[in-house]
């Protein structure tokens, strides 16, 4: 890109905040009442952290892979890519993550989740809370109303944050490979929200930086 230093975030923005949030509103309306089911699945997945059954890791990984697939197809590919051609390529991140979750979590059974009393455990739990409980409230708090609420398992940002939190709760070394796609998505989405002037940017960007620090701290132990 010639003269790359002259570009700012807003040079890459293709749509207005109103168009973006109406996209979420129309998606919410189209999939209703799927939101109740996905939130229920999210809470059930969080509850499984307390369950030490041998199939726990496979089930959590399978649920995450299923929800990522659904969000990638129903929102990113079918709706978001219409106003943002870059989203077509970003769908690839979802495909990679789903394959990694299926391979490491479901096929090999290499992921086992457990809450721990350290920085990574606290951060993981905070991210789960943010994804499932706080994110749906952000739209009404920002004055955009409930119809534009971003719900886990329905739109990307909360759906991506939850697995980052869960992956911090994996027993043993942090699964770095599984964190790459969510972190990249959060970086791109955070930059988009910053360019849109959206207050959610100030939640998403730190929410993806904190876990990296927490995972690194756990990795050093």
């Amino acid at each position: 890109m010639p003269e790359w230093w002259t570009y700012t975030l807003s040079d890459f923005l293709l749509f207005s905040p109103r168009t973006y949030y109406r996209l979420i509103e129309r998606h919410n309306a189209a999939v209703w009442p799927w939101q109740i089911m996905t939130l229920g699945l999210g809470l059930a997945t969080a509850g499984l952290l307390l369950h030490r059954a041998p199939w726990q890791g496979r089930l959590v990984s399978g649920v995450l892979a299923a929800l990522w697939s659904w969000v990638a197809w129903s929102f990113v590919w079918r709706r978001y890519a219409v106003i943002n051609w870059a989203a077509t390529y970003l769908t690839g991140l979802y495909v990679v993550e789903v394959l990694l979750l299926l391979w490491a979590g479901v096929v090999r059974g290499a992921l086992s989740f457990r809450w721990s009393r350290d920085a990574a455990g606290a951060t993981g739990l905070a991210l789960l809370l943010l994804s499932l409980g706080v994110y749906p409230l952000l739209a009404p708090l920002a004055g955009r109303g409930w119809r534009q609420s971003e719900i886990f398992g329905v739109v990307p940002d909360p759906t991506v944050l939850a697995p980052v939190g869960l992956l911090l709760l994996v027993e043993g070394a942090p699964p770095w490979r599984l964190l790459i796609a969510p972190v990249l998505w959060c970086a791109v989405s955070g930059a988009t929200l910053l360019a849109l002037g959206s207050p959610e940017a100030w939640i998403l960007v730190p929410a993806v930086l904190l876990p990296l620090g927490a995972a690194a701290a756990r990795g050093r132990r």
């Binding site: 923005l13 293709l14 749509f15 207005s16 109103r18 168009t19 109406r22 996209l23 129309r26 709706r79 219409v82 106003i83």
Partner: peptide, 13 residues
């Protein structure tokens, strides 16, 4: 039409 007309298939917009 940059940004302003990129409204996808939103009928209202």
């Amino acid at each position: 039409t940059w940004i302003t007309f990129n409204v996808g298939d939103d009928p209202e917009l």
